[in-house]
Amino acid sequence: MIANYSPTPGVSKNRPALVVKNVSKSFGGLKAVDVKHLEIESGVITALIGPNGAGKTTFFNLLTAFDSIDSGSIELFGKDIVGVASQNLAKQGMVRTFQLTKALSKMTVIDNLKLGALHQSGENFIKSLFTPIWSSQEREIESRADALLDRFNLSHMRDEFAGTMSGGQRKLLEMARALMTDPQILMLDEPMAGVNPALTQSLLGHVKLLRDEGRTVIFVEHNMDVVRDISDWVVVMAEGAIIAEGTPDHIRSNQVVIDAYLGVHHDRELSNDV
């Protein structure tokens, strides 16, 4: 069980989905990410937390090849993925969502989902000219998309433009669209940001369901209640490095984490003496 792992940064896991070694990334003189060793257990929900500017989103971008690493190695299910283009990572089972949702506004909700399916023969220009080549696959994709819309309670929006959706609905749409690739790992960048409390509960339910289906979920989050509620394991970043990892209970009482969030002197009275 995941709870049995020692709560020390860089602890190795039995069934790691991702193994990150010595990954660093600098922007000019600023070292944004410097992760010595991190393993992400498969089949569980891992939360990535840390104060603003800790490098969480940059780390996410490095893992998903939306930004290139300066040095180090990243392995996805034992395969080195450094240098693999982001679109090919989706084909290897890793898909991400974005902090600022990227609903494709001028496309209908159903088209947004259908886009997500991988290996579509109709995406080849020559084959696209002949409907019979891709129409049966298209029907299969459409029924999968409809099932997902149903699961995420978006069926009533099916033929509306995605641009007409509310912020929370867009988060759901993005998650559903990511699932169209049938990923083994989902990387969710702040899935609850800007979502009202009622919808947050339903989103949390969906994330737990992903784990129960056997998928690995990694998500960035600020809200500690959310983190405590759904994550099995928590990784804490500060100033680009992993400063702690452990179960939510370990992390809550970890002095290093509290100091990183609140400052080393947070429990002292404010005073003028230095």
Binding site: T64, F66, A85, S86, Q87, N88, A90, K91, V95, R96, T97, F98, K102, L104, L115, G116, L118, E123, R177, A178, M180, T181
Partner: peptide, 8 residues
């Protein structure tokens, strides 16, 4: 970016 994240 959304298209790339979905394997396009």
């Amino acid at each position: 970016d959304a298209a790339r994240s979905l394997g396009k």
